[in-house]
Every structure is written in structure tokens, then in C-alpha cells.
């Protein structure tokens, strides 16, 4: 059986089936270009997305670039 855990992604609860930050982005079907990920207030560099493990109740924040002056 899969180990389903609950994460808080941008403050909303989310059932997560994978293990790493990269798995989460795949599950959400988000592009990896132009986005940044943080756990609590710490930025997770792209180079370690595939090796950074996510655990139950973690606060994950995903940011994207948008238009602005």
C-alpha cells in the first residue's frame, strides 16, 4: 500500500503519495520553469528537489513568476 501523507501546500491541505519535492510538483502537474519552492521559510534549491524528502504536516510553499512592475 502507498504511504499517503498530508502536506500543507500554500496553506491548503493536500494528500500526497510521493516522497520528494519533485514528486509533489509532478503530482500537481506544475512546470518546473519559473517556479521556486520553500519549506517553511527556507528555499529548497532546484538541484535538491529530487532528494529533499517531504514528511507529514510539512508546510510547503510554491511560488511562480507573474506580471509586475
Amino acid at each position: 500500500m502507498s504511504n499517503e501523507i498530508t502536506l500543507y501546500v500554500n496553506d491548503s491541505p493536500l494528500s500526497f503519495l510521493g516522497k520528494t519535492v519533485m514528486d509533489l510538483l509532478h503530482q500537481l502537474d506544475k512546470p518546473s520553469q519559473g517556479i521556486a519552492v520553500a519549506i517553511d521559510q527556507t528555499v529548497v534549491p532546484k538541484s535538491v528537489w529530487a532528494t529533499t524528502m517531504l514528511e507529514s504536516d510539512m508546510n510547503v510553499f510554491i511560488f511562480e513568476s507573474i506580471a509586475g512592475g
Binding site: 511560488f63 511562480e64 513568476s65 509586475g68
Partner: peptide
């Protein structure tokens, strides 16, 4: 210049990044 915001997980936003990069314009977040 560009801004950064928490991603809207329910909706896809306009991709403005790609055309800017295609035109070789330097980005200033």
C-alpha cells in the same frame, strides 16, 4: 521586471516567461 507570488494551485496562469526568454530579454524580479 517581474513579480513573484504564491502559485494558484487550482488554475493555470498565463505563461509570460517563455516569450520574454525567447526574445532574449533580461529578467529583473
Amino acid at each position: 521586471t517581474l513579480s513573484l507570488r504564491r502559485m494558484d494551485l487550482k488554475h493555470q496562469s498565463d505563461n509570460i516567461l517563455q516569450p520574454l526568454q525567447q526574445h532574449g530579454i533580461k529578467l529583473l524580479p
